[in-house]
Design a protein around this nucleic acid. Structure first.
Lengths: 236, 236
DNA sequence: GGTATGATAGACCATTGGTCTGTTTCAGCC
DNA sequence: GGCTGAAACAGACCAATGGTCTATCATACC
């Protein structure tokens, strides 16, 4: 094997990229270290020079995911024109960043992320995301409580419940993927939209808001994501 | 090794027992098949005579857990004197079966179940539990909707959210375990009781009930479980 | 130009989940 | 009681895995 030397940061990202592709397509357990280093075109020595273990690679990957997600909502957090409710709604929908054109990509991520063999990876990402998002959510909620928009005795608890919304959709999406047919997809869309409405009124209640205040995503967004995926599927 | 022949069902349960002990103490990944067969005192041939793979063993274990849990609440489901709300509350608290004396055991299960290395096992159990519990919950909720106690447009969604309550406590408990000190425990108790109250009012709302209708567990139950554990810990 | 240090290669290792062949036990039949 | 076939079990064996170790290359710096 020819010896290629890259800048450490580049090489590291390189390994992460290849690992991400393999872990997402085959799952963390089924993708072997040999697969990773073969894909990245490096030797075992090189790999262990950058990561102390396969587990550490997984964690680094989860961290990167969480950081990227955080960066994606940074503008919402920084926007000074948003009141607490608006900020919370924007965070929940994330629709400012996730435009409809990228819906197909969003689905691709969903599809791979929620596959059963990706449980471990998904969980790590969730942990990392929780660790970095929770404090921000708590901050927003606390501000809302102070200025009187929200009313709750447990901001951290509310934040956790908000975070769990992601997990909540897990089962539904997983089943839709397992099924795969158009009919399954249609069912999944309806179930998800109902579920979203349920979460909205639950959040309204535990934040002491009048009904209809919380709006998770724009109406029809889920359908847009799902149908975009269907189109992409049929194209290939 | 002497050749001991047991009744197939006995042998199977035997293997499951030893696997359960090992998986819970060491985690599914870290406990090797050799550990399991050594602990069970059998050969590889014997093991693969009963289970097609290590994965299948995990699934069988999860199934058994789910079946046991189901059996534990069967009386609540069969009780003809309970109205839908009472039945739901009883299911949520499970306090009829889980008396305070068994609190220490409950904790032991919690402690092992929620350890990070048991993610996979926990998830399988959760899936199995979800599969068998959800329909029952939906049935109860549907009855409540019919007789006018509950009011919701999405019984399945409500059932799922109820089921997720178990997962919700996961993080809190996991952190308390990670900490381990009395102070950590005290914090965990308070956080958990707040979280429970939050869930109660959220469920009240999405079931169209007046506040205070849903009661997850008797007041002080969490503290009872936690302190029982503390006593058990200090005893040894 | 020498050299220390980081970056890379690849042989090597113990262990793992899983397979395969062979042996023992025993119920059912004559 | 003896025979037989299938179920129950034992254990050698295997490829692959995550991880270690030593040797080699490249480069920045004096």
């Amino acid at each position: 094997m020819p010896r290629v030397i890259k800048h450490p940061e580049i090489r590291r990202e390189d390994i992460l990229d290849h690992a991400q592709a393999l872990f997402l397509t085959q799952g963390y357990d089924r993708a072997s270290l040999n697969d990773v280093i073969a894909s990245a075109g490096i030797s075992k020595g090189a790999f262990y020079h950058y990561f102390p273990s396969k587990e550490a690679l997984l964690e680094a990957l989860a961290d990167r995911f969480a950081r990227q997600a955080l960066a994606a909502v940074q503008s919402v957090l920084d926007d000074p024109d948003l009141d607490p409710l608006g900020r919370l709604n924007s965070l929940l929908s994330q629709s400012r960043q996730a435009k409809i054109e990228t819906a197909a990509e969003a689905w691709a991520l969903f599809e791979t992320m929620f596959r059963p063999e990706n449980l471990v990876l998904f969980h790590r990402i969730n942990l990392a995301a929780h660790a970095s998002f929770s404090p921000l959510l708590v901050k927003v909620i606390r501000q809302g409580v102070e200025d009187g928009t929200f009313r709750t005795f447990d901001p951290e608890g509310v934040a956790d419940i908000v975070m769990q919304f992601g997990l909540a959709t897990h089962d539904v999406v997983a089943k839709a993927i397992a099924g795969g047919s158009d009919a399954d997809m249609e069912v999944a869309i309806e179930v998800l939209e109902k579920r979203v409405r349920l979460y909205e009124i639950a959040l309204d209640r535990i934040l002491g808001l009048p009904d209809g205040s919380i709006r998770i995503g724009e109406p029809g967004y889920i359908r847009a994501v799902m149908t975009a995926r269907r189109k992409a599927d049929k194209a290939r």
